[in-house]
Design a protein around this nucleic acid. Structure first.
Lengths: 336, 336
DNA sequence: TTTATTTACGAAAACGTTTGAGTGGATTGC
DNA sequence: GCAATCCACTCAAACGTTTTCGTAAATAAA
């Protein structure tokens, strides 16, 4: 490893002071264009790279943001990160990734550790396993934070979500239009706003169509995939619904498997709609009708909001942006 | 924002020197256990957080690694990152993510910028769009780097790949066993070792089974998805193969669409195998036979190797680890 | 010409931490 | 009993920037 080259090197080489070099590199108005040019040229020639630690230490700007999500190996989140990374890169920012695996303790550990000035801001989609979120109230006062998709409505920070209520409502209504009378619901994220809104949309749509809501027609998500499978199977056997709405992708797929096992025909015997960002939805057997969230756009918007906050020094009045999901009708709900 | 608390605060509070506090926090043998305990207690009480910039600047350790990949919204890579993040977290490391979108220039920009001491090491799966990779030769001398999945065999660094040749060979042989005589190949990553190996496995297996390789039976991947679709369609129309092996997921899916459009029955008229980490492969219509790479494990192993290098100060003799992919037989290749 | 203002740069103090070189005092070795 | 060793801690110099303040020279205003 050769000796590292610093602004000191440049200064010595050009016979100017360290501060002049620093200012030149930062394109300060204090420095003449000729000097700047000389500095830039030499910097490029010597492949000078500003030491981020030193820079951060002095300036308190890290050019880094953190993204905290439940799971990266998930279509929605990986697409969202895709969007985030893209706008971050355009602004010359770096992106740190943290997975909570739906574990609140890990989540808190991450957020606490980010208070040390490692990042300029945080993008977070909260874990679903617990609703004690007091620490967020203090967090958002300490560091610019934007919540996306999974938010806490009572935390005073910028938020971005999708129209969960409306899309669940519309999906349910659509099933009713298709003639379904007994619409089951696969319930997840039940201690988060998103989960509650989706459920509410489902219930309200049932009611608006003179159908009664019954607990027996719902299955609650469990961490244990096998249990989910069994619960769904039980639902199919005992209630024999003619349609099912899944609030998350991870419950729709076992549903397909159950139907395979029980020889339930989709969409003949059972129609299925799921919240999902699966890009193979059109290729499933049968192709799956989905409520698809604009994941990529959501990531971009979330990052954009964060940068807006970072640009102005003061904290913004918390803005809450809502994007529209789209109901993509496919074979799993085709009317005969 | 309240005043930040530093080791200075702790030192003053406990009436000991700054260096004692620092050493205590780092669990140095120079400090008595009683003093350490006092420092730790107070640190916890005041929620002290070590300032990473200052620490990095002085110690030249960032506790951060970078992951450079083509695309995050891809099953293989998101699963790999999942593994990487997990072992990084266990070691208290932070993970930076960079997407190249298969763009070599971006890739070089990233690696160059990482030379500034922002990270302790790099995990990279290289971009496929170009094979000029001279800059990597110097990169790996400057900073511990591990290549995973997409590697350059001539770069002197640690690598981890899967058995691309064998798995392609076996998949092809399997198709022959199923009675296929005209096996097409969807060719991607052609200027990378992985791509070449897969192709070689395919060719050699053909030869070993007295089948001739013909260029006309291959389609080259293009960035333009529509073009891929047309090329595959053309292949089906003109050559009417009885099987196809896709070297990447992104070519297998259009293949399904083409078959739908042309009313080609899978697996009756055409059998399909694809390299893929799609978790919905069993649910496709028909379920897709895949060569599945151990993405999660690969991420973990890659990170493990990097940490092994970081643990010892000196650079390791480049080790090249190969993991096994698994051929998962499903309906898209079922023999009649 | 004198005075004010601008321009372009330099000196030096931070930022918060780590770390090697001390330093008294106690303990040990011979 | 004296030197050597060890213990537990302190001092102060780094690490590479940014930034405030100061200032000489050049220009403009008077």
């Amino acid at each position: 490893m050769k000796e590292t080259i610093t602004i000191k090197t440049l200064a010595k080489e050009l016979n100017i002071s360290i501060s002049t070099v620093s200012k030149a590199l930062n394109d300060s108005y204090e420095i003449s264009i000729e000097t700047k040019q000389k500095v830039w040229d030499l910097a490029k020639m010597l492949k000078y790279n500003r030491n981020p630690s030193a820079s951060n230490l002095r300036s308190h700007k890290t050019k880094t943001i953190a993204v905290i999500i439940p799971e990266i190996a998930n279509n929605f989140f990986s697409q969202a990160i895709n969007g985030i990374e893209e706008v971050a890169r355009q602004r010359g920012y770096h992106v740190l990734i943290y997975q909570t695996h739906e574990n609140t303790e890990l989540e808190t550990a991450f957020t606490e550790s980010l208070l040390s000035g490692r990042v300029d801001g945080i993008l977070i989609s909260v874990s679903s396993d617990n609703n004690n979120h007091d620490h967020f109230a203090t967090l958002v006062k300490e560091i610019p934070t934007v919540f996306f998709d999974r938010v806490y409505e009572d935390i005073d920070a910028a938020k971005i979500t999708t129209d969960d209520y409306e899309s669940a409502y519309n999906a349910t209504s659509y099933l009713v239009e298709c003639g379904c009378k007994k619409i089951a619901y696969l319930y997840a994220l039940n201690n988060l706003n998103a989960g509650k809104q989706r459920m509410a949309g489902y219930r309200d749509a049932l009611e608006a169509n003179q159908l009664v809501y019954r607990d027996a027609l719902t299955v609650n998500y469990d961490k244990d995939a096998e249990l989910n499978y069994q619960n769904i199977k039980q639902l199919m056997l005992t209630e024999q619904p003619d349609a099912v709405i899944s609030s998350i992708e991870d419950l729709a797929l076992p549903c397909y498997y159950v139907c395979k096992e029980l020889d339930i025909n989709i969409p003949g015997d059972l129609k299925i709609i799921s919240f999902s960002n699966l890009n193979t939805a059109p290729l499933l057997n049968p192709s799956l009708t989905t409520i698809t969230q604009p994941a990529l756009q959501m990531g971009k918007e979330a990052a954009a909001i964060l940068f807006k906050i970072l640009d102005k020094k003061h904290f913004e009045p918390n803005e809450w942006l809502t994007l529209k999901s789209t109901l993509i009708k496919r074979d799993s709900t085709s009317c005969p």
